[in-house]
Structure formats: C-alpha cells, structure tokens
C-alpha cells in the first residue's frame, strides 16, 4: 500500500511516454476513446491498422507483465450487471460526445494546457465523484 504511489508514478511516466511516442512518431493524439471509437463508427477506418496495432499493444503488455507479479491481480470490478452495463453505455456515449476521455482530454490535453481538456477533466472528475458519493454513500447501491 505504501508503495502504490511509486508504482502509480512509474506507470504514469510510461503512459505519458506512450503518448509522446504516438505524438512525435505519428503526429496524433493518443486518446483511447478516439482510437476505439473511430473503429466503431467507421470514422477511423482509413487508419485501421495503426489503431488495431495500438490496441493490440495495450492488451498484450499486461499479459507480458502478468507473470512477474507474485500476487494475484484483482480488478475489484463490481459483479452487479446493471452497474456494469449502465456504466459502459455512459462511458461509451460520453467520451465520444465529448471527443475524449482520461487519456485524450486528461493526459494529452492538460499537458498542452488545452482549455477544453482541462474543462472536460474537471467535469468528468466532478461527475464521477458525485456519482460515487450518491450511489455508494447515500443510496448504498455500489
């Protein structure tokens, strides 16, 4: 527990390096929702294979690192199906309408001092915090 922040920082630096490689190499903004969303609605099919390659990398690396961990990794995902489905729908719709998520607006936007990135991040953090407070502490549903 005491070392969690160090791993958070190291992992964060890796995430940012991934974004830097994507930007300086391909000249594009590394946003997870945009890369996936473009495949879903067809708007990104002209860059199909680089999107697929990126997503493959995201899925593969945890599998490579997995054996290095002696402890069992638990994602603590809720087993309440309605929560998972409603949350998934909201995340999918919201990130596409706002044109970005934690990686695009958060990491890539804030680091270039984009006002849209900063505003988006403020709103999704506030909404997330309020939703959790309401459903966990007030209603006791999650």
């Amino acid at each position: 527990m005491e070392t969690d922040w160090i791993w958070g920082l190291v992992g964060g630096l890796l995430i940012g390096t991934g974004g830097a490689v994507y930007l300086l190499g391909n000249g594009r903004i590394m946003g997870a929702s945009g890369i996936v969303g473009g495949l879903v609605d067809g708007s990104g099919w002209s860059t199909l294979w680089e999107r697929v390659a990126f997503l493959a990398g995201v899925v593969i690396m945890p599998l490579i690192l997995w054996p290095l961990y002696s402890v069992k990794i638990d994602t603590h995902l809720t087993d309440k199906m309605w929560v998972i489905i409603v949350a998934g729908l909201l995340v999918g719709v919201g990130t596409r309408i706002a044109n970005g998520c934690t990686s695009g607006h958060g990491v890539c936007g804030i680091s270039r001092l984009s006002m849209r990135g900063i505003i988006a991040t403020v709103f999704y953090i506030l909404a997330g915090g309020l939703m959790l407070a309401l459903f966990r502490h007030v209603l006791g549903l999650i």
Partner: peptide, 30 residues
C-alpha cells in the same frame, strides 16, 4: 457537447471505476 459528454462519461467512470484505456488493457483478466 464537451460539458454534457464529459459529465456522462464521468458518471459511468464513477459507477464502475473503468474508463476506456483500462477497460481495454484489462480485457483479458477482468
């Protein structure tokens, strides 16, 4: 679009604790 979209995203993010990047990264072990 920016404000409402981000609020909808945040609501889902708070409910499940997953955003698009980690949802993809953890697909094999979630």
């Amino acid at each position: 679009r920016l404000v409402i979209g981000s609020v909808l995203f945040g609501m889902g993010w708070g409910l499940a604790g997953l955003c698009p990047g980690p949802a993809i990264a953890s697909i094999t072990y979630n």
